[in-house]
């Protein structure tokens, strides 16, 4: 069973999967770090993004990998709307209020999906990327490879944005809780709103990619919510590259559990890893401080 081929295969699966998970988590990390907001509903935004991709795929016959072209601007605006309607009211609130309000949001999103799309899992009828490349006996699925490339491209753009632009530098200053010069003359409120818009917007990219190889149902939100929080916990204050690395570690845990134990046991490994991490490395693996 435990052949080198199988190991290598799952190593590749894990890295592919993990880089996509990282893309799903980066928005949460931005909002948690910059806006200082605890969003328990992040996974449900991912779920919603997957349904939007499904909807666009079915109604417009759009390939799910292309749906973020519409999904990103929609979710960008959704981020602004959610910020104005809910988030900005609880930014200064104690953690309990933030948890409570966003758990409320989680329940709303979950039941919205349940009412519109019902409980049965939905997956896209077909994607142009439904094939695999072969390297000897190793398979590389085109959908996940494309997903990884999109993810890495997004991380590169994000990195450039956060290190080279004035707005991005201000965001990082806000994340570090510094009253530094970078924040002089910056409207923090607008910065928070932009971060939410960006954070939720990127979710649309991840949702489209995830739907190419995973079905969605209303409970998917909880699973991705805990997964993305796990990634954020591991990354600590390690910035975008920390998220990418953490995502890959969890992707590997996911792939290896599915291959060598049981596909249904993936969450067991991931969440136990998460809890152990909180116990023994509460500041994350890639923290700078």
């Amino acid at each position: 069973m435990l052949s080198p081929t199988l190991l290598l295969q799952n190593l590749i699966f894990g890295v592919l999967l993990g880089s996509i998970y990282a893309l799903a988590a980066i928005g949460l990390s931005l909002i948690f770090g910059v806006v200082n907001l605890t969003n328990f509903a992040h996974g449900d935004f991912i779920m919603l993004a997957m349904y939007i991709s499904y909807f666009l795929g079915v109604s417009l016959k759009l390939d799910p990998i292309l749906t973020p072209i519409i999904g990103f601007p929609v979710f960008f605006l959704l981020g602004i709307a959610v910020y104005l309607a809910i988030f900005h009211k609880i930014i200064r609130a104690p953690p309990l209020s933030q948890i409570a309000v966003t758990v409320g949001l989680l329940v709303l999103l979950r039941n919205f999906a349940l009412a519109v799309w019902h409980a049965e899992p939905k997956s896209i009828p077909r994607t142009l990327l439904g094939y695999s490349y072969r390297l000897g006996s190793i398979l590389i699925p085109a959908d996940r490879l494309t997903g990884m490339l999109i993810s890495i491209a997004t991380f590169l753009i994000l990195h450039l944005f956060l290190t080279k632009t004035k707005t991005g530098i201000a965001m990082r200053a806000l994340a570090d809780n510094l009253d530094s010069a970078a924040l002089m003359g910056v409207n923090v409120r607008n910065l928070n709103m932009l971060t939410c818009a960006l954070g939720i917007g990127i979710v649309a990219l991840a949702g489209g990619i995830l739907l190419t190889f995973q079905p969605v149902n209303p409970m998917t939100g909880l699973i991705y919510g805990l997964l993305t929080w796990s990634i954020v916990a591991m990354a600590g204050l390690g910035g975008v590259s920390g998220i990418l690395l953490s995502g890959i570690i969890f992707g590997l845990a996911d792939a290896f559990t599915a291959a060598f134990w049981d596909p249904r046991a993936r969450e067991i490994t991931i969440y136990i890893l998460f809890i152990l991490l909180l116990w023994f490395r509460p500041k994350g693996l890639f923290g700078r401080r």
Binding site: L96, W229, A233, W261, I268, F274, L278, F280, P282
Partner: peptide
């Protein structure tokens, strides 16, 4: 509590426990 988990992390890990047990009994 030993490692001082508070607020958001306590809430998340307790919620994760539900899913862990669900999947564990499923498997």
């Amino acid at each position: 509590f030993r490692f001082g988990l508070r607020e958001v992390w306590y809430a998340l890990s307790s919620l994760a426990l539900v899913v862990i047990l669900y999947k564990l009994f499923l498997v």
